[in-house]
C-alpha cells in the first residue's frame, strides 16, 4: 500500500520536475494564494481586537492547525476529486486492472509537489501562533493529536466526495462545497458561526473536532456554546468513525461503478 503510493508519487513528481522554473513559480504562487487567507484574517483584526471572543493570535492558532491538516490532504489526497473526469473519459477502467487499490491511484493522480508551498505557509502561521501565545505546556500533547485527526477527517471527507461522484457524474462540483467549504469553515473560531451550523458540523459532519473542540482545550477556553468538557477529547473517535463511513461509501461506489459504453 504505502510503497505503491510512494512509487506513484515519485513518478508524478519526476514528471512535474521536468520544468524546474515552472515548478518553482507554482510553489511560490500556490503559497501566495493561500497566504491571502491569512491576509484576510489580518485585515479583519486590523479593524478589531477581538472576533467572536477570540484574539488575533488565538484565531491564527486555530487557522494554523486546520491549515496544516487541510493542506496536507489537499496535497496528498485531494486528487481523488478528479474521479468524475476519469469516469467520464473512461480512464478509470485502467486503474481497475492494476494490482493497486484505485483509491491510491486516484489520490496520487497528477500529484502536484508544488502544493508543498501551502503546507509550509500554514506551518509558518502555526509556528508563529505557538511562539506568541502563552500556552500551558502540559496541554501541548493535544497538538499532534489534533493534526493527525484533522488529516483523517479531511481525507475521509475527500473520500466521501469521491464516492459520491460515482453517482453525481453530472454535477461533481457540488462536493466542493463540503471539501473546500470545510477548509474555509475551519479557518475561523466556530463562535463566529450560528448555533445551528455549529451543531451540524459537530454532530453530523464532525469538523468541530479538527481544531475547534481540541483547540479550546489547548487554549484553555470554555466553549461559548456550552458543550461539556469531555467533547474536547473526542477528535480521534470522530475521525475513526468518519473514516469507516468513508471506506464503506467508497466500496459501495466501486461496486456500483458503471463503466462507460464502448
Amino acid at each position: 500500500m504505502v510503497s505503491s503510493y510512494l512509487v506513484l508519487v515519485w513518478a508524478w513528481t519526476r514528471a512535474a520536475m521536468a520544468y524546474r522554473a515552472s515548478f518553482a513559480l507554482m510553489v511560490l504562487l500556490g503559497s501566495v494564494i493561500t497566504a491571502t487567507d491569512v491576509a484576510v484574517i489580518l485585515v479583519i483584526f486590523a479593524n478589531t481586537t477581538s472576533l467572536a471572543g477570540f484574539s488575533r493570535d488565538e484565531a491564527l492558532f486555530l487557522y494554523g492547525v486546520a491549515g496544516v491538516a487541510f493542506s496536507l490532504c489537499d496535497m496528498f489526497v485531494s486528487n481523488l476529486d478528479r474521479i468524475s473526469q476519469h469516469i467520464k473519459a473512461g480512464t478509470f477502467d485502467a486503474m481497475l486492472i492494476r494490482p493497486v487499490s484505485p483509491w491510491i491511484q486516484m489520490a496520487t493522480d497528477r500529484f502536484m509537489p508544488s502544493r508543498i508551498g501551502r503546507v509550509l505557509q500554514a506551518a509558518v502561521v502555526l509556528g508563529y501562533a505557538l511562539a506568541v501565545l502563552d500556552l500551558d505546556p502540559g496541554r501541548l500533547w493535544m497538538l499532534p493529536v489534533m493534526i493527525v485527526s484533522g488529516i483523517v477527517i479531511f481525507a475521509s471527507l475527500w473520500t466521501l466526495a469521491a464516492a459520491a461522484q460515482f453517482v453525481l457524474t453530472d454535477a461533481p462540483e457540488v462536493t466542493n462545497a463540503f471539501t473546500y467549504g470545510s477548509g474555509q469553515l475551519t479557518q475561523y473560531p466556530f463562535s463566529a458561526y450560528g448555533r445551528d451550523l455549529v451543531r451540524g458540523v459537530t454532530y453530523v459532519l464532525p469538523l468541530a473536532f479538527v481544531n475547534w473542540q481540541p483547540g479550546l482545550y489547548v487554549l484553555d477556553r470554555a466553549d461559548p456554546f456550552g458543550t461539556p468538557g469531555f467533547m474536547r477529547f473526542l477528535g480521534p473517535a470522530a475521525a475513526v468513525v468518519l473514516a469507516l463511513l468513508a471506506a464503506l461509501a467508497w466500496r459501495q461506489g466501486l461496486r456500483h461503478y458503471r463503466s462507460t459504453g464502448s
Binding site: I44, T48, L51, G181, S191, A192, G194, L197
Partner: peptide, 9 residues
C-alpha cells in the same frame, strides 16, 4: 460562511 465572519466583525 463568509457572512458569519463579517457579521462577527
Amino acid at each position: 460562511l463568509r457572512a458569519y465572519v463579517l457579521i462577527a466583525l
